[in-house]
Lab assay of single mutants.
Amino acid sequence: CHSECLGNCSQPDDPTKCVACRNFYLDGRCVETCPPPYYHFQDWRCVNFSFCQDLHHKCKNSRRQGCHQYVIHNNKCIPECPSGYTMNSSNLLCTPCLGPCPKVCHLLEGEKTIDSVTSAQELRGCTVINGSLIINIRGGNNLAAELEANLGLIEEISGYLKIRRSYALVSLSFFRKLRLIRGETLEIGNYSFYALDNQNLRQLWDWSKHNLTITQGKLFFHYNPKLCLSEIHKMEEVSGTKGRQERNDIALKTNGDQASCENELLKFSYIRTSFDKILLRWEPYWPPDFRDLLGFMLFYKEAPYQNVTEFDGQDACGSNSWTVVDIDPPLRSNDPKSQNHPGWLMRGLKPWTQYAIFVKTLVTFSDERRTYGAKSDIIYVQTDATNPSVPLDPISVSNSSSQIILKWKPPSDPNGNITHYLVFWERQAEDSELFELDYCLKGLKLPSRTWSPPFESEDSQKHNQSEYEDSAGECCSCPKTDSQILKELEESSFRKTFEDYLHNVVFVPRKT
């Protein structure tokens, strides 16, 4: 048989008469490798580009789960590009990614509803959504962080984005990388972005840091009482949809009607710091009717980097990364020049730590249904340095008659930039024990000054392991946590139920 035959053949030295091919099969003959313009397919066939392209389009058009959109890589027609490569849609070739590779997620039936953290986790790592997304989240724990972890990498949506009755959302900033909504599939009414009845939605994105392009379709905003109209108009300008909307697409009466839409800028007039305090004062603000001013709200939190936005980490279910302080308005003076500047002394802060701070007014709604208010920009203030805590785990070892090696770990709280350490030492008198000992005694162990690591005695271990207080009263049991108490109650309830079950099964009433 021919060298490319495997198993047997019907005619000697003829690659077209093989029972099976050793390498690849091409047009009725066995070959060692697939010549151009053919590609290896499933490690035994040679196919042309049209064959591989037909497989790709067949799966793409069917949208069946589990099928493969075949691509070409290293002269092979394979189910998908290997790690580190992405497909070129024009020629199906796998090309190296520039940075992290995109991950295209194809949605069944063309859309997916995100109504819980669990459903959001199914899209973790996706960068391109081939379909439409509907966000409908009523509640949950730590929602802002969970949504950002699972949806934060999405850069492109081919269909539309719909935010509907998501009472738990305060902001859409968890879509931190969303840059493009194509609108290839539109919501009824030709809408590519749809926001309806979101009672706590206050911000779409921080438009000073976020760009969003909507290729096709219109915007729809109705019944978002805490979303200011200025935020919607800003989205029109940034996304390129200005002029597409009709009169009733953006409701003037049901958007922002319960919001404090600040239209003035508060400026800080005085800032002073110490290692654990920050004193702030800002310019006074009074609405047209000074009785509408209820006070100020001061927001602050630790910020290692200057990239904080107002609604980071917030949701309507209680999660809030900001510390909020309510401040009463100052006494009002008739003389504008003698107006008191409101302020606040922030206490209990960490030394040498940068804080993000902003302040906003708290006002009631005027009778004319106009909203007044003022808010400052987010500023960054760093507390002063102070003395560091003591170095940890000092170790001293003498390696000769004239040297001592000293080692330690950095302090747990540096409280500033540590530039150097101060080492103090003092000579001590020799131990009298060394002169009084009889060095001729056998088995004498000389006193040693070398360091030995501390260890816990058996008594201390027994005390720590004991669940009861000892007789001397030195140790006591740790208080039980809520989960331990709940577990004990469940076990007790189970024992009672099981005992009742045994009584009912074992003891049967005697027939009379």
Score class of each variant (00 low, 15 high):
Leu161Gln: 03
Ser171His: 15
Leu153His: 10
Glu146His: 14
Met346Arg: 07
Arg124Phe: 05
Glu264Cys: 03
Thr213Met: 06
Thr273Cys: 11
Asp257Lys: 09
Val325Cys: 15
Ile405His: 05
Asn136Gln: 04
Ala259Glu: 02
Lys360Tyr: 00
Asp292Ala: 02
Met297Ile: 06
Trp322Ala: 10
Leu331Gln: 14
Leu161Pro: 02
Glu187Arg: 09
Asn307Ser: 12
Phe174Trp: 13
Gln121Leu: 02
Ile214Pro: 03
Thr353Tyr: 03
Gly295Asp: 02
Ser401Gln: 11
Glu302Cys: 15
Arg247Leu: 12
Leu169His: 06
Thr241Cys: 05
Arg332Val: 11
Glu264Trp: 08
Ser192Arg: 01
Leu151Ala: 06
Ile188Trp: 10
Lys337Asp: 15
Ile271Tyr: 02
Lys112Tyr: 00
Lys162Arg: 11
Leu212Glu: 04
Asp292Tyr: 06
Lys242Asp: 09
Thr215Glu: 10
Pro284Thr: 03
Ala316Glu: 15
Pro225Ser: 03
Lys350Gly: 03
Thr215His: 09
Tyr194Cys: 15
Val104Trp: 07
Ser230Leu: 06
Ile232Asn: 03
Trp286Val: 06
Asn307Val: 10
Asp249Glu: 15
Glu231Ser: 10
Gln121Trp: 05
Gln258Asp: 01
Thr273Gly: 07
Asn150His: 15
Gln199Glu: 03
Gln199Cys: 00
Thr213Ile: 07
Asp335Gly: 09
Gly139Pro: 00
Glu283Arg: 13
Thr127Met: 15
Asn130Glu: 07
Lys103Gln: 04
Arg202Pro: 11
Phe290Pro: 04
Lys337Tyr: 13
Lys267Asn: 13
Ser192Pro: 13
Ser171Thr: 11
Gln339Ala: 08
Leu294Arg: 12
Val170Glu: 10
Asn248Gln: 07
Lys301Gln: 02
Thr353Ser: 12
His106Phe: 03
Phe221Thr: 08
Ser269Gln: 10
Leu298Ser: 05
Trp207Asn: 07
Asn334Gly: 08
Leu362Met: 08
Thr364Asp: 14
Leu172Asn: 02
Asn136Ala: 05
Ser116Leu: 02
Glu111Ser: 08
Phe299Gly: 04
Met235Tyr: 15
Leu266Cys: 03
Asn340Phe: 10
Ser401Leu: 11
Leu153Arg: 09
Arg179Val: 10
Ala145Thr: 04
Thr254Arg: 07
Val324Glu: 07
Phe268Val: 09
Leu147Lys: 00
Gly243Ala: 07
Gln121Lys: 04
Ala303Ser: 07
Ala385His: 06
Thr323His: 15
Arg138His: 04
Arg347Leu: 07
Glu246Ala: 08
Pro287Ser: 01
Glu368Lys: 10
Lys407Met: 11
Pro351Ala: 09
Leu265Ser: 13
Lys209Leu: 11
Asn307Lys: 14
Ser400Glu: 15
Leu212Asn: 01
Thr371Cys: 00
Thr371Tyr: 14
Ser158Ile: 11
Ile250Glu: 15
